[in-house]
Amino acid sequence: MSVLRLLGLGWWLQLKMRSRSAFDGALAIVYPLFFATSVFLIYRQSASSTALVAAAVGASVMGVWSAVATTASTSLQNERRQGTLELLVGAPRPFALIVVPITLSMATIGLYSLVATLVWGRLVFGIEVSFVHPLTFALACVVTALGVAVMGFVLAVSAVRYRSAWALGSALELPIWLTCGFLVPLSILPDWVRPVSWLVPVTWGVSAIKAAALGGQPWPGIAMCLGVAAGYALLGTLLARRMVDSARTHATLALT
């Protein structure tokens, strides 16, 4: 119960902090919209209206990853810069439980972007998505956001020693969009990409979201997204413990 309270309060506090800058908030929503708009304009030239609707659903999820990729990779750097990293590490709770709410709040902002992209597609491009399973769609979106948040958690703890972590996160934005089935079917990518994509939770999340919105079986995707995300959570927890132990031993917590 206290773990859930910690996660909940941490998430809410981080979400409020992230909502302070209107300029940054607008960017989190608008930046993926630029790419989504390009995608809509490309698909509008195609003869298939079904493809345009599928593109709208896929493009809407891009913002969730976009909201996490760069910010998560720099999140611990920012804590260090603010002088709060030592306080977080010193808290009488596993470090992983402190970091996950940070990336969870980022993914929540990404959900705003998801909604904004669908609304943008509807209002500007007249793309009407008639959700086949609306409730399952909402659940798939939440599960995908959770999966993305856990990916962000792994990224955050992996990049803690990397001074220019923002560049790494920024560089990961497009490869994930490309290889995880947001817009491009995995079947047209080179064969070796597919097994790699299956190891990323968001691939299964996107598949579930598309199935829930356009018709299909969303539940296997939801289950796989949760399962792979659990693996990432375990990996991130082990990494976080190792990083913290190493930083304490070598007295490098405050250093990059």
């Binding site: 390009s38 995608v39 490309i42 698909y43 030239q45 195609s46 003869a47 493809a51 593109a55 990397y162 001074r163 220019s164 560049a167 790494l168 920024s170 560089a171 497009l174 490869p175 969009w177 490309l178 817009l183 491009v184 079917p185 047209i188 990518l189």
Partner: peptide, 30 residues
Amino acid sequence: SPWVLVPTFVLGPIFQILFFAYVGRSAGVG
């Protein structure tokens, strides 16, 4: 720094090109 230059100026443009080229292939456009 190579830690910034490589992701930003080497990987970034290549993946942007690949992303849109594959979106184009997927849409059957361009």
